[in-house]
């Protein structure tokens, strides 16, 4: 660990005389800086997407798993009796915290978005809805369904699993895609830095041959290139990350009406995650340049 920190310190502080032996790399320098900045900018958004969808998946899973609905479809003259029966069953079902039948006003409010506010709820054969709230451990949904079908044939339990699962799965898939995007961005950046480093190495073939001729070891020559590209990637990624974080901060704030898109961003300590992008970019650039340099140097005696 001490040796690693020593090497890291040497890489950051550098040796001015050793740095000067490699001439300025021109286009390759800008290519590294710009590609690292662009990749870091994209990485911030991929990270924001991953974290936001992660939060969404947890919220959906948590909120929906705490509630269930019993729907009673029965002739009008049996509706009150069946409702009472179902409430009695729910009252003694382990894991059910509370249960209450929705009144006419609540039912009208539920249907208003589709049928308007003037729907004559009382004259229509609309099922009675019972809202069930679970306790922490939850109830045995399969057992409750069996009991309801036996004692109250018109009652159907909807524990939200059927439509909750695809939503949670979609959110988790989005989160995975976000992380996959981060991996692809890292790979693309490594490829860009490798190409830029190889271009710089090819352009400096004469410099490398001269350095070898006067007794330079491969690692000395490689270090001069690696330090340069690592610091450029770090600087570019820092600028790109900062720009990305500002852009995410300027996104509209999360609200109920906006839903998922307005929740795309960082929350709380989530803002610390993007700060890992510049060091990560520097590590990628370090290894990509080192591998490219040593590979090129092997071709020079």
């Amino acid at each position: 660990m001490r040796a690693f920190l020593g090497r890291l310190g040497a890489l950051l502080t550098g040796d001015p005389r050793a740095d000067r032996v490699v001439p300025p790399s021109g286009a390759a320098a800008w290519l590294t800086l710009l590609s690292a900045g662009a990749m870091a900018f994209l990485a911030v958004f991929a990270l924001a997407l991953s974290l936001a969808t992660g939060r969404l998946a947890e919220r959906w899973a948590g909120a929906l798993s705490q509630g269930a609905t019993v729907r009673i479809s029965a002739p009008a003259e049996q509706m009150a009796a069946q409702t009472r029966l179902v409430l009695d069953i729910l009252a003694v079902t382990p894991g059910v915290g509370s249960a209450r039948a929705l009144d006419t006003a609540e039912t009208r409010a539920l249907l208003a978005p589709w049928f308007g506010p003037d729907l004559p709820v009382d004259s229509l054969p609309i099922p009675q809805l019972i809202e069930v709230t679970e306790t922490g451990d939850g109830f045995d949904a399969e057992g409750l369904k069996l009991r309801l079908s036996a004692e109250a044939p018109g009652a159907t339990l909807d524990d939200h699993q059927r439509w909750r699962r695809p939503l949670v799965a979609a959110a988790e898939r989005l989160r995975s895609l976000g992380f996959l995007s981060l991996g692809l961005i890292g790979g693309a950046m490594a490829a860009m830095v490798t190409l830029a480093a190889q271009a710089a190495l090819a352009a400096n073939g004469q410099v490398i041959r001269t350095l070898r001729l006067v007794g330079a070891r491969d690692i000395y020559i490689a270090r001069a290139f690696v330090r340069r590209f690592t610091l450029r990637a770090l600087a570019g990624a820092a600028a790109g990350t900062l720009a990305g974080m500002i852009a995410v901060a300027l996104l509209p704030a999360a609200d109920e009406a906006g839903g998922f898109l307005t929740g795309l961003g960082f929350a709380g300590t989530g803002w610390l995650w993007p700060l890992a992008i510049p060091p990560f970019a520097a590590i990628v650039a370090f290894w990509a340049t080192r591998a490219a340099a040593l590979r090129t140097l092997r071709e020079v005696q």
Partner: peptide, 8 residues
Amino acid sequence: RDDVARLR
């Protein structure tokens, strides 16, 4: 290769 560098 390091030996060659030292030789030079």
